[in-house]
Amino acid sequence: MIINNLKLIREKKKISQSELAALLEVSRQTINGIEKNKYNASLQLALKIAYYLNTPLEDIFQWQ
């Protein structure tokens, strides 16, 4: 199981879903879906999320 901390980290950094989506060149709905565990981010997208949030990938998506 993967624990998804994207919403928590994004909100801590005061970045909206729309802002993050624009940086990543995806839709806001994609970010929303990832945060609600409706969609799994591809490895490429997960790495981009970590880069733009300046946060280690394993802090955003944790295996349990």
Rank of each mutant, 00 (worst) to 15 (best):
N54A: 12
N40S: 14
S18N: 12
Y51Q: 09
Q17T: 08
I15C: 06
Y39C: 14
L43G: 05
V26K: 01
E58Y: 13
R28E: 15
L45I: 08
N32K: 13
Q29P: 06
S16N: 05
K7I: 05
E25L: 11
K13W: 07
E19A: 14
Q62A: 10
K48Y: 04
I31K: 01
I15G: 02
L43S: 06
I3V: 14
I2L: 12
A50E: 03
L23Q: 10
K13H: 11
E58W: 10
G33Y: 12
F61Y: 04
T30Y: 15
W63Q: 05
Y39E: 10
Y39I: 15
W63M: 07
E25Y: 08
L45G: 00
L45D: 02
Q62T: 10
W63G: 05
Q64N: 12
N5V: 05
L53P: 00
K48E: 04
L57W: 05
L57S: 03
T30C: 15
N4F: 07
N5S: 05
R10N: 01
W63F: 10
I15D: 00
L20V: 02
K14M: 11
A50M: 04
S18W: 11
N4H: 04
N40T: 15
I15S: 00
K14Q: 12
K12I: 10
L45S: 00
P56I: 04
N40A: 14
Q17M: 08
L47D: 04
K12H: 10
A41M: 14
E25R: 15
K38P: 05
K12R: 13
L45R: 00
K12V: 08
V26E: 03
Q17W: 03
T55Q: 05
A21D: 00
S42A: 05
V26R: 02
S16E: 04
K14V: 05
G33H: 12
R28V: 15
A41P: 15
N4P: 03
K38M: 13
I31M: 04
N4W: 06
N4Y: 04
L45C: 05
I60W: 02
E35Q: 03
Y52I: 15
L8S: 14
I60Y: 02
I15M: 15
L20Q: 00
F61W: 08
L20E: 00
T55I: 06
M1F: 13
L20R: 00
Q44E: 15
T55D: 02
W63L: 07
E19K: 14
N37F: 08
E19G: 10
N37G: 15
A21W: 04
L57G: 04
K36E: 15
I49M: 06
K48F: 04
Q29A: 14
R10A: 03
S16R: 07
N40V: 15
N40Y: 12
E58A: 11
K36G: 09
Y39P: 02
A22I: 11
Y52Q: 07
N40Q: 14
Q29W: 13
Q44S: 14
T30Q: 09
T55S: 08
L23R: 09
I15P: 02
I31Y: 04
R10I: 05
K38E: 14
E19P: 02
K36S: 14
Q44L: 10
Y52L: 12
E35W: 03
Q44W: 11
S27E: 06
I34R: 01
P56W: 06
L43T: 08
N4T: 03
S27A: 05
Q29Y: 10
T30F: 14
S42W: 05
I60P: 00
P56M: 04
I15R: 02
T55Y: 05
Q44N: 12
I15V: 10
Q17L: 11
A41I: 15
E25K: 15
A41E: 01
Q64H: 12
E25W: 06
S42K: 05
R28I: 15
W63D: 04
E58T: 11
T30G: 01
F61E: 01
R10E: 01
K38V: 13
Q17P: 04
S42Y: 05
N40R: 15
D59G: 06
L57R: 02
I60D: 01
E25F: 10
Q64E: 14
E25I: 06
Y51A: 09
K12Y: 10
W63Y: 09
A41K: 02
K13N: 11
A41S: 06
L47C: 15
Q17C: 03
A46L: 14
L20S: 00
N5I: 07
K7S: 08
D59C: 13
Q64P: 12
E19D: 11
F61P: 01
Q17F: 03
L47S: 09
K38R: 13
F61N: 00
E25H: 15
S42F: 04
W63P: 05
I31V: 11
I15F: 08
L53E: 01
L8Y: 11
L43R: 13
L47A: 10
I49G: 00
E11I: 12
Q29I: 09
I2C: 15
L8E: 15
I9E: 04
A21T: 02
K13S: 09
K14S: 10
N5G: 04
I3A: 10
G33L: 15
E25A: 12
V26A: 02
L53I: 04
L57I: 12
K48G: 06
I2T: 10
F61Q: 01
I60T: 03
K14I: 04
L47G: 07
L6Y: 00
V26Y: 03
L43W: 13
Q62M: 10
L24Y: 01
K36I: 11
L47F: 08
N54G: 11
Q17S: 06
A22Q: 12
I2Y: 12
L23P: 00
S18C: 13
L23V: 13
T55E: 10
L23D: 06
N40G: 14
S27M: 03
A21H: 01
E58H: 13
F61H: 00
L53F: 07
L53R: 01
L43C: 15
I49W: 01
N5D: 04
Y52M: 10
L24R: 01
D59S: 09
Y39V: 15
N4C: 09
A50V: 05
L24N: 00
L53Q: 00
T30A: 08
Q17D: 03
L6C: 08
S18D: 13
K7M: 07
N32E: 15
F61S: 01
L47K: 13
I3N: 09
I31D: 01
Q64V: 12
G33R: 15
A50I: 03
Y51S: 08
N40F: 12
K48S: 07
I31C: 03
L53W: 03
A46S: 07
M1A: 09
K38A: 11
P56T: 05
A22W: 06
A21Y: 03
M1T: 10
S18M: 12
A21K: 02
R10W: 06
L43D: 04
E25C: 15
P56K: 09
Y52R: 04
L8A: 15
A50G: 04
N37I: 03
N5K: 07
S42R: 05
N37L: 07
I34P: 01
K48C: 08
K7W: 05
I49Q: 00
E11C: 11
I15A: 02
L57K: 03
Y51H: 11
Q17H: 03
L24I: 09
A22P: 00
L24S: 04
L6K: 01
N54T: 08
Q17G: 04
L20Y: 02
K48I: 04
Q64I: 08
E58C: 12
Y52A: 14
A50K: 02
I31A: 01
A21G: 06
I34G: 00
I60K: 00
G33M: 15
N4R: 03
E11A: 09
L6T: 02
K38Q: 14
I3T: 13
W63N: 05
I2H: 08
Q44V: 11
L8V: 15
N4A: 03
K14R: 12
R28C: 12
S27I: 03
E11D: 08
E35Y: 03
L23G: 09
A46V: 06
L53G: 00
Q62Y: 09
L6F: 00
T55M: 07
D59H: 11
E35H: 03
I34E: 01
L53V: 03
E11H: 07
N4V: 06
T30P: 01
N37Q: 08
P56V: 05
E11T: 11
E11L: 12
M1S: 08
A41W: 06
S16K: 09
I15K: 04
Q62D: 06
L23W: 14
N5F: 09
L24G: 01
I34K: 01
N32T: 09
N4S: 04
I34M: 04
R28H: 09
A46P: 00
S27L: 02
P56L: 05
L45N: 01
N37V: 03
K14F: 08
L57D: 03
L23K: 11
L24T: 12
E58N: 12
E35S: 03
K36F: 06
P56C: 07
L24E: 00
S27C: 07
L20T: 00
T55N: 02
L57T: 04
Q64F: 07
S42I: 04
K36V: 09
S27K: 08
A41R: 02
Q62R: 11
L47V: 12
S18P: 06
K36Y: 06
Y52D: 00
G33A: 15
K12M: 14
